[in-house]
């Protein structure tokens, strides 16, 4: 427990633990931080935070990119350089870090509209995105709205090979103008 806690604190820059310097998974994860933020907490709007996402979700998506089943503009290239064991370890590592919601305030009207247009999402992602139904489903509360919008564009685009049929079906049913609204709704949620 103590070691675990140190991992989390060190990743957030709140404590230091020299033993982590020699930890191979820490070393690998440090390269992920460049794009996904120190400790997996992103501050770039188009890049997702990955700290605190479920292990199953992370592992699934990374392995789908590696096999080529799922498209990505860039992760499909990078992830092929990692072994399956490293991918599993990275998924485990980031899943044990706490989720940091980057709450992006939105106007009351937008939130009301957002609640409305995300009704179809609730069953799996929970009312505010913070309580997903199962471990295969990512949490959305306080994830970057820009990133969520781009993800939905991927699901809606027939030329972009995605794997989750339910997501493709549901996002394609949405009105075009509602995509950004839905994304902003989840970005504004704290839990």
């Amino acid at each position: 427990m103590r070691h675990n806690l140190l991992f989390a604190l060190a990743a957030l820059g709140l404590a230091s633990a020299p033993a982590l310097a020699a930890d191979p998974i820490e070393g690998l994860a440090r390269t992920c931080n460049n794009c996904h933020g120190t400790g997996g907490v992103s501050v770039g709007y188009s890049m997702p935070s990955i700290a605190g996402l479920s292990e199953t979700y992370l592992k699934n998506i990374l392995m789908e990119w590696k096999s080529g089943a799922r498209a990505s503009a860039n992760m499909t290239r990078l992830i092929k350089g990692y072994t399956d064991e490293e991918i599993a370890a990275l998924a485990g590592y980031y899943s044990k870090l706490p989720w940091t919601a980057q709450v992006q305030p939105a106007a009351k009207e937008l939130l009301a509209k957002g609640k409305d247009v995300t009704e179809r999402c609730e069953t799996c992602h929970g009312a505010t995105g913070g309580q997903p139904d199962d471990k295969e489903t990512p949490r959305l509360n306080g994830q970057w709205a820009k990133y969520l919008e781009l993800e939905m564009l991927k699901y809606r685009d027939e030329g972009f090979q995605m794997t989750h049929k339910k997501m493709m079906k549901n996002t394609r049913k949405m009105e075009e103008g509602d995509v950004a609204t839905a994304a902003k709704y989840y970005g504004a949620q704290s839990k």
Partner: peptide
């Protein structure tokens, strides 16, 4: 076209994260 759009968007997210990291 979505591939090119995504990477243009990711460039902005990338620079914000590398500066912060």
């Amino acid at each position: 076209a979505i591939y090119r759009k995504l990477e243009a968007e990711y460039a902005d997210g990338w620079v914000r994260n590398v500066m912060a990291d």
